[in-house]
């Protein structure tokens, strides 16, 4: 009840100013515990990835820095693996690879998806149909199976992982951009702009892009766990990042090979994957509430 008075007072002086993004963020987060957890987790993960060389207590690839397959101790927080490497250092270093893959692949998928989606939405009908068919075909591949096919041709590497994730994510983004563009194409304010003789570049940059970008970024944030699981999965199979480089998938693979001797590599390698998934999912949901309340589903 107490907050009705200032509102009505403000209303009498004219329309309320649009709340700033920061204000909206704080308001949504104050009533949303999982959102706060999400932002904190993501900040921790990105921070650890950026500061990895300073945080990791040992060289992640140095062997025999401790006993082999030791359980966690004060010197080795997550224990050591089968050749005596410090698992905690490897997990921290692996976060760098994961974040690198996520950023590179999502950035390229977003830009290509944006371009193709705009072309499909604004271009001629036949081009739209051709692109839709291509998107549907690409989406019918299971990501990992498609990734394995690509690995057979160009060999396993960090680049292969980025390429696979980018190609399989493009259709999803492009489809969203296409739908949004088509809806906007016939919106009255766009028609009005065109009647006033506004050119296509300006129309795209000022009116279409901002309307399309919001949902796209929210979706991308929720896709980060999927990307990271794909990277870890391919690396686990030995088809992604190659062994001496510490990736979460490589750590898990080492752990799997010695699972009957020590559980710690599996536990250490899986914790960050689970935390990343929780963090980015919660953050994505909170972002959706902040930027696009319309997208929110019934709770």
């Amino acid at each position: 009840m107490s907050d009705t008075t200032p509102t009505s007072a403000a209303a009498s002086q004219g329309p309320l100013p649009e709340p700033t993004v920061l204000a909206r963020t704080l308001r949504v987060l104050s009533g949303n515990r999982t959102g706060v957890i999400g932002f904190v987790l993501v900040a921790l993960i990105i921070g650890a990835a950026v500061l990895a060389p300073w945080i990791a207590p040992y060289d992640p690839t140095a062997i025999m820095v401790g006993p082999r397959m030791a359980p966690p101790s004060a010197e080795h927080w997550l224990g050591t693996d089968n050749i005596g490497r410090d698992i905690f250092s490897r997990v921290i270093a692996g976060g760098r690879i994961a974040m690198l893959v996520a950023m590179a692949s999502l950035a390229s998928a977003l830009s290509v998806g944006l371009a193709l989606g705009l072309i499909a939405g604004l271009g001629p009908r036949w081009l739209d149909n051709v692109l839709l068919l291509l998107f549907d075909a690409l989406r019918s591949f299971p990501v990992i199976v498609f990734g394995l096919a690509v690995v057979t041709i160009i060999g396993p590497s960090l680049f292969t992982v980025v390429l696979v994730v980018a190609i399989t994510s493009v259709p999803i983004y492009a489809r969203i951009v296409r739908t949004q563009t088509m809806a906007l194409k016939n919106a009255e304010f766009i028609l009005a702009e065109r009647a006033m003789g506004v050119g296509m570049p300006r129309l795209l940059a000022i009116h279409v892009l901002p309307n399309v970008l919001g949902p796209l970024l929210i979706l991308a944030s929720m896709d980060v766990p999927l990307v990271i699981a794909t990277e870890a999965g391919l690396s686990f199979l030995g088809m992604g990042v190659r062994p001496p480089t510490p990736s979460w998938g490589v750590i898990l693979n080492d752990g799997y090979n010695f699972i009957r001797n020590s559980p710690w590599p599996v536990i250490g390698g899986s914790i960050p994957i689970i935390l990343v998934t929780l963090g980015f999912t919660f953050m994505g949901e909170a972002l959706r509430d902040i930027f696009d309340p319309k997208l929110r589903k019934a709770r």
Partner: peptide, 19 residues
């Protein structure tokens, strides 16, 4: 459960129920 990828789940199943 949604947060745990299938292959991580598989590793834990081996660890807990088989090992």
């Amino acid at each position: 459960t949604i947060s745990i990828p299938a292959f991580v789940m598989a590793l834990y199943s081996v660890l807990i129920f088989a090992v």
